[in-house]
C-alpha cells in the first residue's frame, strides 16, 4: 500500500493528461483542466513546508548561538516582515510588500544579474585558454559573433555583422534544433518511465 498507491496515483494522473490531450469537451478534458489547478494548489501548500525549512535551519543557528546567528536572525526578520506584510496587507502597489520589493529586492536582483558580466569574462578566459580543437572552434565562433554585434566590428571588417548573423541562423540554429529533438525524446521517455512506474527514484526507490 505504502509503495503501490503513490505509483498508482502517478499512473492515473499521467494517463489522464495524455487521454485529455486527444479529447474535446469530454469529462476527461474537464478533469484534466481541473488537475492543472490542483497541481498549483498542491504546490501552494508546499509553501508552508518551505517556511518550516527556513525557520528550522535559521532558528537553530540563532538558538545554538552559531557564529552566523545574527545573519540568520536578519534573514528570519526579512522573511517574516516581507511574507507577513504580503499575507496581512496584500501585495498590491503601494503596500509595504511592494515597496520592499521595488526598493531593495529588485535592485539586488539587477545587481546579481549584472555580476554575470564579470563571470562571463572569467569563464571565457578559462574556456579559451584550454588548448584543444573544440575550444578553438568555440573561441572563433564566440569572437566572430561578439565582434559582429558591436559597432566596432563593422570598422574591423564590414562583413562581420553578416557573418555573425549567419552563424546564429545556420549552424547555431541547427544545433539548437538537434539538441531540442534529442532532449524531447529523452523527456518523453522519462515521462513514460514515470507513468509506467519504472522510474521511481523521485520516491526514493530505484
Amino acid at each position: 500500500m505504502k509503495s503501490r498507491l503513490p505509483v498508482l496515483v502517478a499512473f492515473i494522473s499521467g494517463a489522464l493528461m495524455i487521454l485529455a490531450f486527444f479529447g474535446r469537451g469530454t469529462v476527461v478534458d474537464a478533469v484534466s483542466d481541473r488537475a492543472l489547478t490542483w497541481q498549483t494548489i498542491v504546490g501552494g501548500f508546499s509553501l508552508l513546508l518551505g517556511a518550516v525549512s527556513i525557520a528550522r535551519v535559521h532558528w537553530k543557528k540563532v538558538a545554538t548561538k552559531h557564529e552566523d546567528r545574527l545573519y540568520s536572525l536578519c534573514l528570519l526578520i526579512c522573511f517574516i516582515v516581507m511574507g507577513g506584510s504580503g499575507v496581512i496587507n496584500g501585495i498590491g502597489s503601494g503596500t509595504l510588500f511592494d515597496t520592499l520589493f521595488q526598493r531593495i529586492q529588485a535592485p539586488m536582483m539587477s545587481t546579481m544579474f549584472s555580476v554575470l558580466a564579470f563571470f562571463i569574462a572569467s569563464a571565457a578566459y578559462r574556456a579559451f585558454r584550454a588548448r584543444s580543437v573544440s575550444s578553438a572552434i568555440l573561441l572563433v565562433a564566440a569572437v566572430l559573433v561578439m565582434l559582429g554585434r558591436i559597432p566596432m566590428g563593422q570598422y574591423i571588417y564590414h562583413g562581420l555583422p553578416s557573418w555573425a548573423d549567419w552563424i546564429m541562423t545556420v549552424p547555431s540554429m541547427a544545433v539548437q534544433r538537434g539538441i531540442l529533438i534529442g532532449a524531447a525524446l529523452g523527456a518523453a521517455s522519462m515521462s513514460l518511465r514515470i507513468i509506467l512506474g519504472i522510474e521511481r527514484t523521485y520516491l526514493g526507490r530505484g
Binding site: G43, S46, L49, G204
Partner: peptide, 11 residues
C-alpha cells in the same frame, strides 16, 4: 522552490 524541496527531502 518548496515543492521540489519536498520531493528532494523525500528522495
Amino acid at each position: 522552490y518548496p515543492l521540489p524541496m519536498a520531493a528532494a527531502q523525500e528522495t
